[in-house]
Amino acid sequence: MVDRLANSEANSKRIAVVESCFGAAGQPLAIPGRVLIGEGILTKLCRKKPKLRQFFLFNDILVYGNIVIQKKKYNKQHIIPLESVTIDTAPDNTEYDLRNGWLIKTPTKSFTVFAATATEKSEWMNHIGKCVGDLLQKSGKAPTGEHAAVWVPDSEASICMRCQRAKFTAVNRRHHCRKCGFVVCGPCSEKRHLLPSQSSRPVRVCDFCYDMLTAANGGRPIRQDQFNNSAVSEEDDDDDSSD
């Protein structure tokens, strides 16, 4: 069915509508063979709190963005190649009373989303799984083995998850280890290490993960002169830290 829709006028119009909703800031989405499978609103568990996001599932990519005007305007477009995606069911979130969730895991970024109903969750997971399976079968590639950690939400940690002593305040800020996703204090995450799947520059990691990574690297640490402190703020480089 996907192959039959690939070059149809109806599919082209649907993709053109999605492109127009993202405006000039969005990337072009229409390419030969691409099909829009479905779309819908999901609740994304962000760093600060859960937020509604508009998702579009294509046969080769997953696209999502912030809702400015429903069905008319979206911004902060994110495009995820489905070949790199792995999905797993997620537990209910009792703090925000969220159910019907699953993990979307990629080497670059991983996060949790929740559907409104169990049926909707099942449909999303089935469609994503089929698209990923079809892509891997056509390419002959193996499923991605490494994924970025899912960040622990700020609200789940009142103290550092590593030292278990430092309390978070307006002055003592929360930070996230890019390797394990834990919420940690500044002193427990002063080091940086290169995680090629996430960034071309060394990124913040906690002391535990730093020691593990350097040991796996033959004990060779990242030198401080291999990155500069004028880089983008560690907390501002996440799409959900400021929205």
Rank of each mutant, 00 (worst) to 15 (best):
A6P: 01
D239P: 08
A30D: 01
I15F: 07
N217W: 08
E156M: 08
G38T: 14
L194A: 05
F56W: 12
D3A: 14
C206T: 04
K49E: 15
N7Q: 12
L82I: 01
S197W: 09
G26L: 02
V113G: 02
S197G: 09
T169V: 10
E9G: 05
C160F: 01
T108D: 07
E156N: 05
V150M: 01
N229T: 13
A6T: 01
G65E: 03
G186L: 15
S20C: 09
Y74N: 06
R178L: 08
S20K: 15
R47V: 12
V35H: 00
S241M: 10
V17K: 15
G133K: 11
K44P: 03
N66S: 14
S20W: 10
K76C: 09
G219C: 05
F114C: 10
F227Q: 02
A24H: 07
E120N: 08
K44C: 02
K141N: 14
P81C: 02
N59A: 01
Y210I: 06
W151M: 15
R174Y: 05
T119S: 14
K71T: 07
L103C: 09
L194T: 06
S158Q: 14
G65A: 04
K49N: 11
D134T: 12
D97T: 10
T43C: 07
S199G: 10
R99P: 04
K191G: 05
P221E: 11
R4A: 09
F182V: 12
N217V: 07
D92E: 11
N11P: 03
F114T: 07
P91Y: 06
S12R: 04
L5S: 02
L52I: 07
F182N: 15
I69K: 11
I61G: 02
C163F: 11
K121I: 00
A216P: 11
A25Y: 05
G181P: 00
I37G: 05
M1P: 07
V63F: 00
G186H: 15
L42H: 03
A157G: 06
P187S: 06
C177S: 03
V63G: 00
I79Q: 05
T43Q: 06
C180P: 06
N66C: 13
P32R: 00
H193L: 03
G40S: 11
Q198C: 03
Q27A: 14
K48T: 13
D225M: 05
I67H: 12
P32M: 00
G129W: 08
G129A: 14
G33W: 12
